[in-house]
Design a protein around this nucleic acid. Structure first.
Lengths: 193, 193
DNA sequence: ACATGTTTATTGACTCGTCAATCAACAACC
DNA sequence: GGTTGTTGATTGACGAGTCAATAAACATGT
């Protein structure tokens, strides 16, 4: 049965299964065996490919963050003006790949993991810096020196909407989330135009 | 050594130790023995008083939420106008008892716990409803129908500031947190006056 | 074509540690 | 002597990680 070139497929399956399992359990307190079973393999194979449970979690976290990053980049690609760019970052943050129950629940757990794992913390910081930098680029031409504090507020608001979405069962309301954050953005911009 | 009337003292010590241990570890993955040792007793005694690990966690969560509630109520007590009342809720949310590293880290973990424990979810909902209701009371006279969405935004922003504070080492900047959220509030009010 | 050796894939069974929860027993107080 | 407080020792379960063994695919030489 062993077909060659299984490694990337297995790894991807394990990452996907990890996000699903963690998302469903709402906790990092899941066993490697559960993840592996969901991915259709033995726990020994999961260890064979990733070496440890920590590494599996880290890989899943990287996947979540990289999907998020791709979605924001995708949205930004079409933006022409600074204003559109900032809106794109916000809307990209609530795109379908990231803003779904499972991913949010997993994200929250990885956020917690960052409190005890240096590597997880590092990953999270990279993405927080990138988010901030993306926002700043669009904001500076619009609000000048206030860009820093406006970006701070937007970032916190996005995180806040995420964490609250984690608690509602089922997929959250993308539309409403976007509107809430975008409304805040417009208020910040009003003052300076 | 056994002095009478130890129960409430032991319980309080365990709750305090739980918050400290969870906050320090940044994870619910702590043992009853660790908590008990920190509280200066054996793990058997912790079980004797609380029955199970879950109950210890829930008691700690209740403690955190009740301190938070008390601080908000305390701040609101001095408010005279609707505007002051809303400001009090915000400032109370960042009061010294709740807005410190340990408590925030523990709070975040209990937030996660609410994804898998019905009782934890119930506790959290009670406090979210109370927060919302407190905000609405002050907001309705100020912004009328928009009170709902403004409260939503403020709540999300407060949660966002909290979750971000969880990631920085050491105690967070109370001043800056207040200012950020209050600035948002003022922007929301500007429109309608 | 075929034998032989090497790498990759895969698992069941096992080890070893950990931890929640229990219990029996002891100590102090009334 | 019963109630309250307290612990060390024990149990029973569970789970991460290891290992030996198996099997398919590929490579090479003949």
């Amino acid at each position: 049965m062993p077909k060659l070139g299984a490694e990337p497929i297995r790894r991807a399956a394990l990452v996907k299964a990890t996000i699903e399992t963690v998302g469903e359990a709402g906790s990092l307190d899941v066993t490697v065996a559960q993840i592996a079973r969901r991915a259709g393999m033995s726990s020994a194979l999961a260890h064979h490919y990733f070496g440890s449970k920590d590494r599996i979690f880290l890989a899943a976290m990287r996947s979540i963050l990289s999907i998020y990053g791709a979605e924001v980049r995708g949205a930004m690609a079409m933006a022409q003006t600074p204003h559109e760019r900032v809106r794109a970052v916000v809307m990209g943050s609530f795109a379908a790949g990231s803003f779904r129950h499972e991913a949010i629940a997993a994200w929250l757990n990885f956020y917690v993991l960052a409190q005890s794992s240096a590597e997880a913390r590092r990953l999270l910081h990279i993405y927080q810096r990138r988010l901030r930098s993306n926002l700043m680029h669009g904001l500076r031409p619009l609000v000048g020196d206030r860009a820093g504090s406006v970006a701070e507020g937007l970032g916190a608001l996005i995180d806040g909407v995420y964490i609250r979405a984690a608690l509602v069962a089922g997929d959250p309301d993308r539309e409403a989330a976007c509107e809430l954050v975008l409304a805040h953005l417009e208020k910040e911009l009003e003052v300076h135009q």
